[in-house]
Design a protein around this nucleic acid. Structure first.
Lengths: 185, 185
DNA sequence: ACCTGAACACCGTTCAAGT
DNA sequence: ACCTGAACACCGTTCAAGT
């Protein structure tokens, strides 16, 4: 209830003002509560940022699951390509939030590739299942997934920072090529 | 002179105490100067962090250039593989510094893939020259470079965070496989 | 010309008091 | 039980005074 208001206020502050201007004071003012109330619902400033990241990824993955489910049963290459493309486009669809959440990730012990990252896990599953089915030729599905995930995330950050130097479509096309090279022939 | 002392002090604070404990006060105490002296040589706290990043990358690239120069003239695949491997191992050789500098990169407007990044540029050059020579089959050497760079950097961060879940050698082997798939056949 | 360190401004967090 | 907001602690940055 009140927690949801604070989360919404935090997201709007982050999107409109950016990470530098993201203060607990600003969040509570926008949620119409006293500064101290914030600490009844969140342990710290980092805590609310982590909650925002979780909410962002949950939404992205829900969309992604629906799109992946529409593909034919054994189309592993299609799954891999779709995972890459919807991830990139999903991040780019919410640049300000993604930017604030992941680019200036001033959170202790968390890089772009989070230790416990369900989004990464979903890519691992595709690569493991696809390999077992003989669709991919990789030595380590996990290592390949980490590489592809990092490629996706980092390259997306790059495009966000350099929209003129690198069109999204060019990046997506090259990521498709990369995926096709993992396919068994 | 004095600037170098402050840089060294900043690096030792960062490596020994981490980003959270990294305060201008701590740096100046360790360099045996007054707090205000810091601002005679650096514009801000972010400024000294950027200087440390530059120094770190300069050292890595110097080593890398030497190793690459030892390869036969037209061995583009070897160059690509070596670039990936020496980058990963070079980062891992200085985990505490790399970790503090790039993982919790709480710097405005800078992700793992920096807008003006000479390290990335060196990979772009390899891919462009190799493509021109017919060694690689890629649509966009730049996009492929951004993807490979992001894969390398992000996957390295992952290994740093999860040393038990993913051995370095497994990651390097898979990165070699990825490189070989870019080779023309 | 270079250095000092007290002072200022800002912000995350706490807690005694209120309803 | 939940909320308030003044107070505290900490740290980046500045600047008048010193050598």
């Amino acid at each position: 209830v009140r927690r949801g208001d604070l989360l919404d206020a935090a997201e709007s502050v982050l999107v409109e003002r950016g990470m530098t201007a993201f203060t607990v004071d600003e969040v509570t003012v926008r949620a119409n509560v006293a500064k101290g109330t914030f600490y009844l619902y969140f342990q710290s400033k980092e805590d609310v940022l982590a909650a925002l990241r979780d909410r962002f990824l949950d939404g992205l993955m829900a969309t992604q699951r629906a799109e992946l489910a529409a593909l034919p049963e054994g189309d592993w290459l299609g799954r891999l390509e779709l995972w890459m493309e919807t991830s990139i486009r999903g991040y780019l669809a919410q640049i300000p939030l993604h930017d604030a959440l992941f680019m200036h990730a001033n959170v202790e012990g968390r890089g772009a590739v989070h230790p416990a990252n369900p989004h990464l896990d979903s890519l691992v599953e595709i690569l493991q299942a696809g390999s077992a089915a003989g669709a991919f030729t990789v030595d380590s599905p996990t290592a390949a997934a980490v590489l592809l995930y990092a490629a996706m995330h980092g390259a997306t950050d790059y495009v966000i920072d350099n929209p003129d130097a690198m069109p999204v479509d060019e990046l997506v096309a090259e990521s498709r090529l990369l995926c096709r090279r993992l396919a068994s022939r």
